[in-house]
Design a binder for these strands. Structure first.
Lengths: 343, 343
DNA sequence: CCCAGTCACTAGAGCGGTTTAGTAGTCGGG
DNA sequence: CCCGACTACTAAACCGCTCTAGTGACTGGG
């Protein structure tokens, strides 16, 4: 037998389609006895709702959308991202909601996809990541009237809900730690300056340096790629007065930096301390293992998923959820600076 | 104005719903003049098809499904996987087909999802990865009558189509290369023995050793995790007669192995050569950069996507597509073995 | 000049659910 | 005994689109 419909069930039980619908959705309108009979037959016939039919009636689409604007080839080198995805999955699938994933080339294409998916009723909500300083997406998604959660923040995301971690606090904790070890010349290999979180981290570093009286502290923006991370490291280590510690905005860049140090004969942590502003298996498998700011990215993903589902269930709701501040996991890549010629 | 429907367009243009449908789908039945008028109005009103309504009419769902059975937390440490995903995306989105992604705990749950998605008409086809030696999923998916493509092979996937690379040839090329360098004691840190490709690689290594007269060659299965990769390496390097070369079944394990070598003071490539059976940015950012079997995983993904779309478009079609054999990219982690005490 | 054939289009059924309005039947109170 | 309220259910509209059968106008051949 082909896919059974509620019509088939109705016929078999001897009731109307409506009664079957009520019974299957736990809605009042049928007696308990009838409900039981209907459920039994539905089970026997192995009935499953046809999502499209449901969605057509104006109901939920049963999926949420995640669109990422990156050159497709670079996705997936970021362990952070993959972990986030897993967490999202876990949070969504617990409620049988699917995730529609799309990778596009740029923000313009991304916005186009939001427009399309929203008008096609393909998804019930969106997740926005990689928030920029002045992000055009926020206005567009607000305008579409579709529930959305922004990963990042605080602030700067209009009426959309958000889930965020305190980048500032995190950066302060790193600098405090390095300063306590005795480091005075600290470099920060940052990410894309267009990102809000990059800006926050750079500002936190600057403030921290002022407060602690560290003179030679600087942030160097990159595009988050391993290539630029390596190039920037090479440049830093070629300086006559090179930094004694480098903070990288991603674990991938930190590992790339470690590779450059090895190549240039700079001992880690003897001559150079390295801290990664993100953790993953990567930082642990290299030698020496990298000191890293560790957070539960998986949990972050589930948090985002649940927040979004809550908003979908109750439109108009707005939520700003702060996640625990990441903590520094001290490993083997940090040590007091060598008492060198120029310290 | 809320979302416009073809009804709205029909009214505005002064034709029937049917005419609008024909015009918008490039179907015969309307004059060119009318078609142009309809398209113009549709454009003005910013009309988009309602996917659910379309799908309800028995048409395509406009999405394909990818279900992965892994503990959700471990997804995404595999660069291979992320790259594949990007490629899939690229191939699918070129045809405006979405990807429904779900990560589940085990194969049983995976099968349940296939059943559900198929009966809910949520997807038009499936992509199966991580094929096991005797894989229960193949029968189930065949039984569902939903188009599917298996990544892996050759053979052992019933009537389903497949896209595959020649693991055997690849392994032979690695062993030939190492033997040519002078290595005689080669270890293979393999993946899960339940996987077909792990079996093929192990067999290829064995055959190769026999052919080349290499006496001390062995494959050691792991679960593909960095932890087991590291542990196995530690064990191998602690042997009195340790291998002079190790081949790892994934880049992640190779990097983990490199870390262990560094930790144990074993010089790479001086005392030990390392080859990774998979390439990614990982192998390039470490120092020394790892010699690796490189293939275009992104292209593999698009290939899979296109194969699946072809089968969806023409059910009954069966295709076995072999992708180019991966090539060995020689980097800094391989060299002739040291003329040690016991070689 | 008539009829068959083509063209351009319309009307409406159907996809599989949800939901609303309506209808029997029962029950309790006055 | 009648009326109103409530319960359990039915019938049918509706969601937005596709697609088939049907219709009227026009064309061309005999």
């Amino acid at each position: 037998m082909a896919r059974p419909t509620i019509e088939d069930i109705a016929r078999r039980v001897g009731v109307s389609k409506g009664a079957v619908s009520f019974a299957l959705n736990g809605r009042p309108g049928v007696s308990e006895a009838t409900r039981a009979r209907i459920l039994k037959v539905a089970e026997e016939m192995n009935w499953r709702p046809h999502t499209a039919a449901r969605a057509l009636g104006g109901a939920r689409a049963g999926a949420v959308g995640l669109v990422i604007a990156r050159p497709a080839r670079t996705l997936g080198v970021e362990p952070f991202f993959a972990q986030l995805l897993s967490g999202l999955q876990a949070g969504l699938s617990a409620h049988s909601v699917a995730l529609e994933l799309l990778v596009v080339e740029d923000t313009e294409a991304e916005i186009e996809v939001y427009r399309r998916w929203a008008s096609e009723h393909r998804v019930d909500g969106f997740i926005l990541v990689d928030l920029k300083v002045r992000d055009t997406r926020v206005d567009v998604v607000e305008g579409l009237g579709v529930p959305a959660v922004v990963l990042g923040g605080p602030g700067r995301h209009g009426s959309l809900s958000s889930v965020w971690a305190d980048d500032r606090e995190a950066m302060l904790s790193i600098v405090d730690y390095l300063a306590a070890l005795g480091h005075r010349r600290i470099a920060h290999v940052a990410g894309l300056p267009a990102f809000q979180h990059t800006q926050r981290r750079m500002r936190a570093l600057r403030d921290s340096a002022r407060r602690l009286g560290l003179a030679e502290v600087s942030s160097l923006p990159t595009d988050f790629s391993d290539a630029e991370g390596a190039a920037t490291t090479r440049m830093l280590l070629s300086r006559p007065r090179r930094p004694t510690a480098i903070v990288y905005d991603s674990d991938l860049m930190a590992v790339a930096g470690l590779g450059v140090a090895g190549e240039m004969g700079v001992a880690v942590p003897g001559d150079l301390s390295i801290v990664a502003f993100d953790d993953s298996v990567l930082t642990r498998i290299v030698h020496p293992a990298l000191t890293a700011l560790t957070r539960d990215t998986f949990a972050l993903g589930t948090e985002v998923a649940e927040t979004l589902l809550a908003i979908v269930a109750e439109p108009g709701l707005q939520r700003d959820r702060r996640t625990p501040t990441p903590r520094l996991a001290v490993r083997e890549s940090t040590a007091p600076p060598a008492l060198g010629r120029d310290s």
